Computed example of a mutant assay.
Amino acid sequence: MSPHRSLSVILLNICLVLGVPEQAIASAASSTPATEVKTQAGSSYTDTEQVTRTLTDYLEGTANSEPEKLRRAFHPDFKLYVVNEANELVTRSGEQYIMNFNNGKKNNRVGRILSIDIENNAAMAKVEVLAQNQRQYTDYFMLMKYQGAWKIVQKSYTWKEIPKQGNKILFVTSNQHTYGNTNLNAANHFAEIVIAYDIFRKNGYTVDFVSPQGGAIPLGYIETSNSIQKAHLYDTDFMRMLKNTFKPTQINASDYKAVYYSGGGSAMFGVADNKEIQNIVGQIYGNGGVVSAICHGTAGIVNLKDSSGKSIFSNKKITGFPDIFENTNAEYYKTFPFSIDKEIIRNGGDFVYSKKFGNNFFITDGNIVTGQDPSATASVAQQVIKTIQKN
């Protein structure tokens, strides 16, 4: 791969996570522009959008046992190639494959598109599927543009077992790109994500990301002079995870031992009032799991209640980003739906903080771990691990 091509791929991954429109990505990366195709209705779709629709037909067809969607997705000469458990190469035609999904029975399969790479009339795609048999499948597709439409001509896959009680931690992030309805950019705090992620992964934990809407999340506060941040920024697999965060409906609460709310201005919006995320975290906490948050991420926990309807942090010490460090007269602050410290207190918590910014201030009270500002990110992650191991 040439240096220019490598730069294009890096720009593509970063821009998609930041929510930059695909047309702008093509221009910025100076790569082959996406071809637009006119439909009969007159609307236009890029090749990437068409491939996405084809892959969505495949995902929905297999999840809901809808043969017609699979036939729509597959080229007439579709072939499946897979090595079975006996180490034998197995091939199947499209119709042989579709026969497995003719019963009309919905399957407990959750899938997401990880990557799409298009070159003229050929494309490669990668999809992840979590299945009811406790397996995680990685599907690899070859697609061709056939009679004006993108069709899957070949599929292969690999899989691995997912432990029912695996060491998994759920990161809660936000899709909010602006402060309220203003034009002021808001973002998830990159360091608060990657520093904690790095510690959890090095200690043997699997991390998943969820956001209220799923999909790409905005990122900010990036410091490429920090080696950990830089390594993750150019890690395409990690950046794909932030581009493809799970929707709450795709999360099984029983899979997780802890929740971690990352911060940044975006964390003030859309998370605290999301009932689905509240229910997920409530179940994890009710099962003895750990709830943690850093900086503005504490905003996400203000409405969490236990099975009796009482705040999970009632009479507990909690910290987060306090108003004394906010510019309360600034336009950005006026968009906040609430004050973190005041809302924690209003709901029965004991909000505590250090008057000095950046001194690694954090609190552990029972199964709740919170940090005041980015300097406490590593300590919060380490305390989460200690609390899990103690339980």
Rank of each mutant, 00 (worst) to 15 (best):
T319H: 01
S314N: 09
I345S: 07
P337Q: 11
N347D: 12
I344T: 14
V302Y: 01
T298W: 01
K316P: 07
T298H: 10
S311R: 09
N347Y: 03
N303L: 11
S339N: 15
H296A: 06
C295T: 13
V352L: 13
K334T: 08
H296K: 04
T335H: 00
T319I: 10
S314A: 11
D323G: 05
I324S: 04
D306Y: 04
I301H: 12
I345K: 10
F325N: 08
N347T: 06
Y332E: 14
S314K: 09
G297P: 11
I294C: 02
K317P: 00
N303H: 10
V302K: 03
F325Q: 02
Y353F: 10
G348M: 06
R346N: 15
I294D: 11
F325G: 06
K316D: 05
F325M: 03
E343A: 04
L304H: 02
T319W: 08
Y333P: 05
T328M: 12
E326P: 07
K317S: 02
E326M: 08
E331P: 03
L304D: 05
K334C: 09
R346T: 10
F336K: 07
T319C: 06
D341H: 09
Y332K: 14
I312F: 02
I294K: 05
I318C: 08
H296R: 04
F351Y: 04
C295D: 11
I301C: 09
T328K: 07
E343S: 08
D350A: 00
T298R: 00
G297Q: 11
N347V: 12
N327D: 15
I301M: 13
N327T: 15
A330D: 11
T328S: 07
D323S: 13
N315S: 14
Y353C: 08
K316H: 14
V302L: 05
I345W: 03
A299S: 15
F338G: 05
G309D: 08
E343Y: 01
E326N: 12
N315P: 00
G349K: 12
G348H: 12
F338I: 14
N315G: 03
A299R: 00
D341N: 13
F336M: 10
A299V: 11
F338T: 15
F325P: 05
N327K: 14
C295M: 12
I324E: 05
I324R: 01
G300W: 14
A299E: 05
N329A: 12
K305E: 06
V352Y: 09
N347I: 08
F336R: 04
K317I: 00
I324L: 03
S354I: 08
I294E: 14
R346P: 01
N347S: 02
I324D: 03
G300D: 10
E326C: 09
Y353H: 10
V302A: 09
N327L: 07
N347C: 04
F313L: 13
N315C: 02
G320I: 02
S354F: 06
F313I: 12
N329F: 10
S354N: 12
F321R: 13
P337H: 09
S311L: 15
F336T: 01
G349F: 07
K316T: 06
P337N: 05
F313W: 04
I344C: 07
D341M: 06
D350N: 15
I345P: 01
K334Y: 13
I312K: 00
I340G: 14
S311Q: 13
G348E: 12
S311V: 09
N315Q: 08
S307W: 02
I344D: 11
I294T: 03
H296L: 14
I318Q: 11
K317Q: 09
I318G: 04
K316V: 09
T335M: 01
N315F: 03
